[in-house]
Design a protein around this nucleic acid. Sequence first.
RNA 1: CGGGGUGUAGCGUAGUCCGGUCAUCGCGCCUGGUUUGGGACCAGGAGGUCGCAAGUUCGAAUCUUGCCACCCCGACCA
Length: 491
Amino acid sequence: MSKGLPKRSDDYSLWYNELVKRADLAENAPVRGCMIIKPYGYSIWEKMQAVLDKKFKDTGHSNAYFPLFIPKSYLSKEAAHVDGFAKECAVVTHYRLKNDPSGKGIIVDPDAKLEEELIVRPTSETVIWNTFKTWVQSYRDLPLLINQWANVVRWEMRTRLFLRTTEFLWQEGHTAHETKQEAIAETEQMIQVYADFAQNYMALPVHTGIKSANERFAGAEETYCIEALMQDGKALQAGTSHFLGQNFAKAFDVKFAKKEGGLEYVWGTSWGVSTRLMGALIMAHSDDEGLVLPPLLAPIQVVIVPIFKTSEQLDLIEEKLKPIIAALKAKDINVKFDHTDKFSPGYKFAEYELKGVPVRIAIGARDIENNTVELARRDTKEKTTVPQEGLVDRIENLLKEIQDSIFQKALAFRSANTLIADDYSTFKKMLDETPGFILAHWDGTSETEEKIKEETKATIRCIPLGMKPESGICMVTGKPSTQRVLFARAY
RNA sequence: CGGGGUGUAGCGUAGUCCGGUCAUCGCGCCUGGUUUGGGACCAGGAGGUCGCAAGUUCGAAUCUUGCCACCCCGACCA
């Protein structure tokens, strides 16, 4: 095992890539842009899934599964939607291979060409709305509240592990409602679910807001999002919730009979978060020693490293630990007792730090004698020697404290890196010298946003919800503005 | 798809300009022993179509041509 991660300050991208690989989260697959999610990385994703899935069910949604393949013709039924995704679709054209007549390898059988090509889903609105058409007849069938956990494929030009991969895992919620108000309420509810998850589980402070027209989802009337700030000062879109209006209902002819008579198109929403959240989690909290995981999402919350010379000593340590381990498990704390002698204690310390285990207990002959253990927390790297008595309660509290402390640290970082710019030259200077979020006035037009993007590579991350209106003038055009919007360079 | 670069053991690499004592080193792996409170040490060992194909040559990792793959920068993007 080679030592040492690249430093964030030297090369943030390199640090991130190395960390993902070295912490056993994921590695590159044989196909460009695809990733193999390794068991440790996948167990973090499973924890995220479990929390989110419960939240979806608690808000009345049911899981279902729709197919991977979408007939090509479906994609083009909603005009904006096809425009948004056409350039990045994987297409299935044949269904059979055969031996190469020249004797070498295998080729696509030209006789096995599909009548209509199939698109590997980049998102499932079209196939789901095509299905909703048959599921919805009357107001009694509404609301329809569906979620699916799935993989999708978007043929991106440039990829990065977790942050942007050709294939990724996600959930996509799709709902249909009787009224516009109800659909908007659903859209807003789900972005709040995401914000709550990000802040309370991922320990990741996020801004909730709506996207400008330029950044809106292809086929949506309004896109709500949560935006997080990474340690290099770049923003990351962590989740989106779309109010689809009646766009897909009209495209797929999904109408319902109203209680008071007459037919009406349903109102739709869709919302999703992906394995990109893994990237956000990694980038937001980790340090030059490795991952820092919030306890609520850590696959291993407490690791115990015994320090021993003989198997008799190990037996003695194990005897001491038995009731402690049992009590931790009884409190649903995930504890790993690493008693193998394949690696030295020092190696194990470094390894579990790399993997972000929040709490480490070391126990050796010295501790047996004194009835103590050494307790170390990953986030601050503090080490203290504490009595074995009351250890379980101490750990339970410590895990809560770490969860909170990681969030507070990220929040403080974000506050320190959220600046206010009143003129364009200050804005540009900030982007280069103190990267982060910048609150600035904008005249509300796509042209101005486009100009800013071209000149600075910064985009409007969102128009934050719940911010006080403040009249001012657009930093570029000088036209009036009623609210500051959140700018940043983004992933 | 444009511009730049790289392919040598599981990973990272030296060697390529100037063809031959050139297949180098580190990590990892295996065996044995000593170790173990912050990534242990010693000894021995295994592992290679030098990206693929053709060519030049007495001789090619090295030169020529073609192909393939990957990486970085740009356009695109959850």
